[in-house]
Design a binder for these strands. Structure first.
Length: 764
DNA sequence: CCAGTACTTAGGTTG
DNA sequence: TAAGTACTGG
């Protein structure tokens, strides 16, 4: 087990400094490590776990919780490289959500869920809420799904059950004051709907874990004794539900080590609670505290500038971060006339520096407060032919085409998953209309069963839908059942491929491919998902194939960071400050340093919000190793109009010793800006003198009468449509006013059209 | 059922 | 401005 010691003359702990080493070696009792930015926090955690195993602690007894999947994976790898992969595998390591979702699946029957429960993402949750709000006949402007979702999420994160919510006088008053008295009813109904669908949202994973540990002492007992050693990374980002899980699990042995930095807490807006750090001393009065204060990442100027900023916050645990590194250059501040100019200036500065020092583009990052700011930089970088990658935004798994296919998988694994069912029952088009679906939903509610049960047995659950539609629905159900029968035994890839084909999704995307590059991309995305599944299939052994059901257990908790392929490529990184947390770059450009943008306008009302913005600024500055440049624009386009901006107060908060104002910006601004203004508003130049559209409209209306009620259209007829041109009728359905024709148009593909409106000319 | 149009809204983001 | 949704007319 300890063979690595023989090979290396030096013990791995020797690579740590004194306080790092103390924190790593102190294995018993409650320990808190407050780790300044760049102080080697991950290294301490890694070595601590390696040391535990060296001390013959069984990896099976270790629970390590991280903030992201990526962090968990990297740590497992690093530990594996020190003590051997086999040992590392037995550690329970992952995010709260992934670790506890597994525990919940194992114990699902105790809390009234199937063990293959679906995990709803935010989109799914909001869609459920929208339905409920509509069902209650409430105004969806007062009850915006995202607002309601946020409110419910907060409640769950604070372990307030629907019943408690409805009875809490304070909450009732709050909702009354915000004119949303029905919130409690919506919350209750939402919980019921999810349970009926066999689904949990992300917050439920934490909520129900608490329920499980609270109501089933034997379960609590089991995990308390399994997880004798508990480690939590990024402790400042935990919420109350997470805090309580840890507290309960650690209660038996109290071997708990939390690592965090209060100065880098930037997620309170979604429930993270700095109090958890402060409470630690109350819960474990005998705790030991270690502070990691030596920064290995940045120059003296950067470290000290960052210190001078964070000093302005009132709420914080005192620590003094310092470094042995060189003094380095001062932080540069540049000013540009417009946001577009900011893009050009920063891009050319990067180009200059890159060719001067012959460094890799990977050494550069542009950080901003909001995603929309990326635009001006992307444009400028493209013009200069500088490779870049924008991080964040829509993730792979959120894309429509991916969600569509996954919905088939989800439905096959758990047919009660109502969101999945609604998503694909008529996609690709199989003539099951909105009205029919609505009727199904209402029926399911009134029979208090799931939509799936209804569509499987119209005898038992009569619904007022015409027979043609009913038989198409039945056909759909049969197809899903045939997938269902294979989901637990056939290997993931062959079933996935079959579903993609026989659902019609592949054909749908294939046919659209010649429409444009976006359609091609969609098709490729689905191919990529399938090849990912193939990989998953191949990694299993002969005896127990990895099934699609297995795949679905993992996929809901994956994010696009989990399938990084661009890591090696040479490019600049563009991202929000939030997503830069935990990363480091030689050169950081922090852009958009303006009042109302950073700090954000919405943070100006309360001190604590402003302090969070300041911590965000602290995080941004401390990403830089060697150089840090701040920029701001004097005017900026915001929602279609140009507004004038003032430099951020944060610039003033940096001790002037550490910054210099670049003169470059001034000279750049002068000559160019005037030109930009001319020519842009050429008033009424485009005014249309004669309007050809008007004419054609008239012509059309005259034609209309002649052939609308010509009902003698049959399959095989050649017809002409006003907008689609000539085509051939391939299918007819419905009667009278509902009569529809499916027509193949050589230039527009196949369309199903209501004859009542179609205005068709029969050609033969 | 399809497609064009009117209307609305705009933060950060992991699981 | 841009993007997404709801509505409406053919």
């Amino acid at each position: 087990m300890t063979s690595f010691v023989k090979n290396s003359p030096m013990h791995f702990l020797d690579e740590l400094n004194e306080s790092q080493r103390k924190a790593a070696e102190h294995l018993y009792g409650a320990t808190m490590v407050i780790a300044g930015a760049g102080s080697g926090k991950t290294r301490v955690l890694t070595y601590r776990i390696a040391y535990m195993i060296e001390k013959e602690i069984d990896p099976f007894n270790i629970l390590a919780l991280t903030f992201t999947n990526k962090a968990a994976r990297e740590m497992t790898e690093r530990i594996g490289s020190i003590i051997g992969g086999q040992e590392a595998k037995n550690i329970t390591m992952g995010t709260f959500h992934s670790v506890f979702s597994k525990i919940l699946r194992f114990n699902a029957d105790r809390i009234g869920f199937p063990n293959n429960f679906t995990i709803y993402d935010t989109q799914d949750s909001k869609s459920v809420l929208k339905d409920i709000i509509k069902g209650f006949k409430l105004d969806d402007k007062t009850y915006k799904p995202s607002n309601v979702f946020g409110r419910i999420s907060t409640a769950k994160n604070n372990l307030i059950s629907p019943e408690a919510y409805c009875q809490n006088p304070e909450i009732i008053l709050e909702d009354k004051q915000s004119r949303r008295p029905e919130m409690g009813r919506i919350y209750t109904s939402y919980m019921n709907r999810c349970q009926k669908s066999g689904a949990m949202d992300f917050d439920d994973l934490l909520y129900y874990t608490n329920v499980l540990l609270r109501d089933f002492p034997e379960v609590l007992h089991y995990y308390q004794h399994k997880f004798k050693y508990i480690l939590v990374d990024e402790y400042q980002d935990t919420n109350y539900a997470q805090y309580l899980i840890i507290k309960k699990l650690a209660a038996a042995y109290e071997n708990i080590c939390v690592v965090g930095d209060d100065a880098q807490s930037i997620y309170s807006f979604r429930g993270a609670n700095i109090e958890n750090i402060l409470n630690f001393r109350k819960d474990y009065p005998d705790f030991s505290l270690y502070k990691l204060e030596q920064n290995y990442r940045s120059t003296k100027n950067i470290v000290e500038a960052a210190n001078s900023i964070i000093k302005n916050n009132k709420d914080q645990i005192h620590k003094s971060v310092w470094t042995d590194n060189q003094v380095g250059n001062k932080i540069k501040v540049i000013r540009t006339p417009t946001d577009n100019e900011e893009g050009r200036t920063v891009s050319s500065m990067i180009k200059e520096k890159q060719s001067e020092t012959n460094s890799s583009y990977n050494d550069f990052a542009i950080l901003y407060r909001t995603n929309r700011q990326s635009r001006s930089f992307e444009e400028a970088l493209r013009k200069l032919n500088i490779p870049y990658k924008v991080y964040g935004g829509l993730s792979f798994y959120q894309r429509k085409e991916i969600k569509d296919l996954l919905a088939y998988f989800r439905l096959s694994a758990n047919p009660n998953d109502e969101e999945a069912l609604k998503r694909v029952i008529n996609y690709p088009k199989r003539a099951i209309g909105k009205t029919s679906i609505e009727k199904l939903i209402i029926a399911a509610n009134s029979y208090s069963t799931s939509m799936w049960e209804v569509i499987c047995d119209f005898q038992k659950y009569p619904v007022d839908i015409n027979n043609g539609t009913k038989s198409r629905i039945a056909e759909f159900a049969t197809m899903i059942k045939s997938f269902q029968s294979e989901i637990n035994n056939k290997d993931a890839f062959s079933l996935a491929e079959r579903i993609a084909r026989s659902s019609g999704i592949m054909k749908e995307l294939m046919d659209a491919k010649d429409k444009g590059p976006e359609e091609v991309e969609r098709f490729q995305n689905v191919e990529e998902l399938l090849s990912g599944i193939q990989e998953f299939s191949n990694s299993s052994d002969e005896e127990n194939p990895n099934t699609l059901a297995d795949f679905m257990l993992e996929v809901a908790l994956l994010t696009d960071a989990d399938q990084d392929k661009s890591e090696e490529i040479n490019h600049i990184s563009l991202m929000t400050i939030h997503s830069s947390k935990g990363l480091e770059f030689q050169n950081v450009f922090l852009v958009g340093m303006e009042e109302n943008l950073f700090p954000s306008q919405m943070s100006l009302h309360s001190r604590s919000d402003l302090e969070e913005e300041r911590r965000l600024f602290y995080v941004a500055i401390t990403r830089a190793m060697e150089s840090c440049t701040l920029s701001y624009a004097v005017s900026r386009f915001l929602w279609g109009q140009s507004i004038s901006c003032e430099p951020s107060r944060f610039i003033d908060e940096i001790d002037s010793k550490y910054i210099e104002f670049s003169s470059k910006s001034k000279s750049l601004g002068r000559g160019l800006s005037m030109k930009g203004f001319e020519g842009t508003r050429s008033g009424g130049l485009n005014k249309i003198s004669s309007n050809p559209n008007l004419r054609s409209l008239k012509d059309v209306s005259r034609n209309q009468k002649t052939n609308t009620d010509d009902k003698n259209i049959k399959v095989g007829f050649n017809v002409e449509h006003q907008t689609f041109g000539k085509g051939k009728v391939t299918h007819m359905e419905g009667f009278g006013a509902d009569q529809k024709a499916t027509i193949f148009f050589p230039h527009h593909g196949s369309k199903t059209i209501l004859l009542r409106f179609a205005n068709l000319q029969v050609l033969d």
